[in-house]
Design a protein around this nucleic acid. Sequence first.
DNA 1: GATGAATGAGAATTCATTCAT
DNA 2: GATGAATGAATTCTCATTCAT
Lengths: 216, 216, 216, 216
Amino acid sequence: MITELRRLKNRARRDATRQRLIEVAKKIFAEKGYHNTIVSDIVKGAGVGQGTFYRNFKDKRDIFENLLNELTEKLLSSFSDMSSELPQNSNEYREASIRAIKRMINIVVANKELVKIYIKEAITVDKELENKIYEFQIRFAQLAKYYLDHAIEKGFARRCNSDIVSKSIVGLGFSLLNMWLGGIIKEEDVDDIITEVIDFAFFGLVGSVNPKGVEL
Amino acid sequence: MITELRRLKNRARRDATRQRLIEVAKKIFAEKGYHNTIVSDIVKGAGVGQGTFYRNFKDKRDIFENLLNELTEKLLSSFSDMSSELPQNSNEYREASIRAIKRMINIVVANKELVKIYIKEAITVDKELENKIYEFQIRFAQLAKYYLDHAIEKGFARRCNSDIVSKSIVGLGFSLLNMWLGGIIKEEDVDDIITEVIDFAFFGLVGSVNPKGVEL
Amino acid sequence: MITELRRLKNRARRDATRQRLIEVAKKIFAEKGYHNTIVSDIVKGAGVGQGTFYRNFKDKRDIFENLLNELTEKLLSSFSDMSSELPQNSNEYREASIRAIKRMINIVVANKELVKIYIKEAITVDKELENKIYEFQIRFAQLAKYYLDHAIEKGFARRCNSDIVSKSIVGLGFSLLNMWLGGIIKEEDVDDIITEVIDFAFFGLVGSVNPKGVEL
Amino acid sequence: MITELRRLKNRARRDATRQRLIEVAKKIFAEKGYHNTIVSDIVKGAGVGQGTFYRNFKDKRDIFENLLNELTEKLLSSFSDMSSELPQNSNEYREASIRAIKRMINIVVANKELVKIYIKEAITVDKELENKIYEFQIRFAQLAKYYLDHAIEKGFARRCNSDIVSKSIVGLGFSLLNMWLGGIIKEEDVDDIITEVIDFAFFGLVGSVNPKGVEL
DNA sequence: GATGAATGAGAATTCATTCAT
DNA sequence: GATGAATGAATTCTCATTCAT
């Protein structure tokens, strides 16, 4: 039926507009920050009418939350398949961590703008989004704790308050991300950075003389 | 002379007003965030006229920057005396770190609101303040690096990319602070948290079986 | 010919759509009032596209005027046959009035929504509709005056300024309608209300001891 | 103290501005109707800045409600002293009614614009104001009923459903007011109109041959 | 110097209306 | 002819800033 085809085409047109708005918003939010962006910036950037924005989103916060959810889904889905096999020794643990971090970093690199928004801006919008971000961090920490507890139990991780330590790990990660996004850490060789950070996380400042890749 | 007395009184009154504005701004910024605070919130809170605000500060950003500087000075002055003697072994390094952290935490606890503003809000105001915060973090990282390099040289710290690692340490600290301010880490026993985090920083996830306080 | 058939079908479809829009508009105007209704309310209610509305009506006011005319025609046509025979005594006058009112009430009950719109909303749209409503009231008053003048002449109504009095009667009627629509007068027994009001109109507050149905 | 004087002057200035806005709003609402008035009409008319309006009133509805309350208070206060002595016979009842009506009319004439708004516009703003108006009408009807019940008891008014009849009386009054404001009833001699309407209310269409001023 | 009323520029938002499909 | 996405003019509303007292 014609009406069905029409509906599809309309839907496609609208989705395209919506997507254009989202892309533009992402770019501008990352550039100028959430608070310094006004709706008409986005509208102008997308080349649509002011009303079109409000047809698609309730307000600035709404499109922002959409962006947030977009990244959240990407990150979570990337970890949905991870929990399959638990590491059986320190080395496997280390390798698994590196793999996880690399996967994360790929997503981060592919969504640099989103991540910047995510980490810097979202917590200053309002309490609701602030909590959303915190809950997300907590989920990460819980995942880290799951692996850490396992490692402690199996004896290849130091006995410790795994709650605090896993939160430390996640915080460490977010911080470095933030520094990298903020330009404090210059890009250089990402792999080197990962190795350094992993070594720090596994062996601390003191550690052994030549810990790299060596099982203790 | 009366005029002189008058002038003094005026100045005292003005300073008091200014101080009250600063105190109130601190409280409100911490509560509602920089962007969700309007000048009239501060003015109402301080019980002064709208014009009085503009007599004391150029605009909202100006009073905010004042708050920022307040904390920066407090933190820096607290570290001005620290660099006296360098640790001579792992244990001294550890003890010195704990002392430094505790000193920091005291300042943080005494200025919880300021710290919250500092960490959460300042980077979203504009590029200038963003950089100011980053530079401050870099200074901290440099201080950490100074000690770390010393420890590596002396042989009681693992050889590593001390630039990345010291930034990691600072990031770790800021993150945990953030989590604590955000309520992700419940207050409980701060000393326990410090020990845990220090152990993590010194011995990593793997570490030795019972590292607490034991020199390797 | 197919084209002819097509044209007929199209017309039928269009008429149906138009009618649906009118029905929905009636309902929504009555519910939310003219000013608090937006075109898209009507369009959504009717399940048609926004453009379809403008294909059938010039604008919101246009569809509103259509509703108005609908009721006007109904009311006027209901009175076109009434003026046949004039009452010859007070009792006939009274009976005729009751009949007229009941006929009116039937129309009103059958078109409650329209009447509500008519009485409440129409006068606030613009001067033109305001006048239209007033002219309609005047026509009613003239009709009432015609009967009243006749009754005065024949001697079974009190000599009075029939212009003012007939306007009073019409006003009374509209007011009670309004109160009923507004819920000030609860529905109870409509016949009772009619009798009471007719008695009030015929005999006033003072009247005779037991005027009901009794010719003075 | 200087501050006290200042406060007084400020208050006076603000009140003057507020009052100017109210006066202008009254005029414009009466002219163009509530719905066809925009805030900037009022602002321009009052010669103040747009912000000044919002300093004094929440929105258009708010200033409108203020106008409404203004009239309500005027009308109610005019009746607060009325309930003193109850009429002892038909003639006193009639005289009291005439006095009441005249008092009302004086207020109405002095607040023609307000009354027009009151009767025509208020019920179309929203449910809340609609109810407010209805409740006001009910209060009037209750007052009328109080006198009517007394008259029936004393035997100088016809036994009737005083609830319906008093509502009829109030409705009659409001209607005529409306007609007069709408220009359906030309102003001529107000006293004549009052006499006619009172006669109609007391003696109905039928009444006695020469009821004016004569006690039955 | 302090005040707070007034301001108006600019941002958000709505909604009647158009128009490509 | 029907549709509903897109539009932007018009309106509301906010809030930093000024300025008369």
